[in-house]
Amino acid sequence: MPSKPTYLGEISKGLWKDNPVLVLLLGLCPALAVTNSAYNGLGMGAATTFVLLGSNFIVSLIKPIIPKSVRIPVFIVVIASFVTTVDLLLAAYLYDLWRNLGLFVPLIVVNCIILGRAEAFASRNSVGRSIFDGVGMSIGFTLTLFLLGAIREITGSGRLTLFQLGETEISFALLGQDYPGILVMILPPGAFLALGFMLAAYNVIQRRFDARKRQLAMASAHK
């Protein structure tokens, strides 16, 4: 029964049903490029979260005054402003993470998740709903990047780094010190391999879920 979408629904759809990486296949450039470690994936996710929340908020707020024909330039100005803000703030407060993410922070401007949500959601929905959509999409994106980074880091080097700032580092040698490492997983091809397996796993789970739902529906229809 299709019901009126709830705020909670806006959040959960980003996690699973409309997961930006696994279902919408958006924002793959950062998803593939920076996820050679779990921590980098987490950092990229956090930076994208800030930009997406900010742009969804501002776009839904100013949408009544934006003429249709200039909406895309306006969205891009808003998004670019938030990205520059993140870039400067990271350089000022999380310098080491900023050095790791390097080139990829400015590239958030062209991350299609953000423009996509501005165009498809925030410019058509209320401020509250847009914020919840941003939260859901961001959590989905961040978790997926973290998972992708963790899979690549663990298979590639046998370690999992959760935090790294200057000299302090929290990391675990999960597969033991002698693990030889599968180098290709840390290199760019590993990103495609890992993502492929994740997509396959997603589809298997989704199909089982659908099949069970169909069975339940049939059972209740026979009653």
Partner: peptide
């Protein structure tokens, strides 16, 4: 005119 004004203001 509205286009120009809105875009300039936002920029």
């Amino acid at each position: 005119a509205k286009m120009i004004i809105v875009l300039s203001l936002i920029a």
